[in-house]
Nucleic acid binder design. Sequence first.
DNA 1: TGCCAGGCCCTCTTTAGGGCCTT
Length: 205
Amino acid sequence: MSLANSVVILDFETTGLSPNWGDCAIEIGAVRIQEGEVVDRFQKLMNPGWPISGFIEDYTGITNAMLADAPSSSEVMHQFADFIGDDNLVAHNASFDKRFLDAELEKISRTYTGKFACSMMVARRIFQDAPNHKLGSLVDYLHLQSEGTFHRALYDSEMTTKVWLAMLNEICERQCSRTVSFELVQRLMKTPKKSVQRLLQPANR
DNA sequence: TGCCAGGCCCTCTTTAGGGCCTT
């Protein structure tokens, strides 16, 4: 069970929901997997330049004191752009993380070439019986081992990785195949739920 | 300090509205 090429699974903690309203990243966490195995990790806090709200301190556990000594987002995002290289990218509710990745990289005139896949959109199709498709709920639904604190970037990216690998395994089993292409996952994301079974028939390998 | 967005999906739909998910 694997993707042929390495993939970076990432998660941002931010000051809010929208970079268009002045929100910015305060932490990036990421895991690189290759052939179903974790081969690298990245985790950095970044100082947004102003105090974050009490709500975000409570929600993430990241405090203003922790951010006071953190490097600037510019410094961290240069390092992260180097880390992701040309790899494809995965996030849970990827539209959210993609908006912040695009916004933070635009500030430093960097870009990336990989394509995004959304673990939440895939989960809605593969695990249609799950009670909901929040990251924590999927971890419980799949009985995945979890010892840590949700809403921290590296931990959430580690848990997204476990969900992602469980989904790849499920796709392989339904297709009677040993590997899954990133292109198939992207097609799956755009497939209506009722057509998923037909897409994943062994003949469509 | 508290607020904001946006893409997807479903249905009581498509000339729309609201829930899900992310911080």
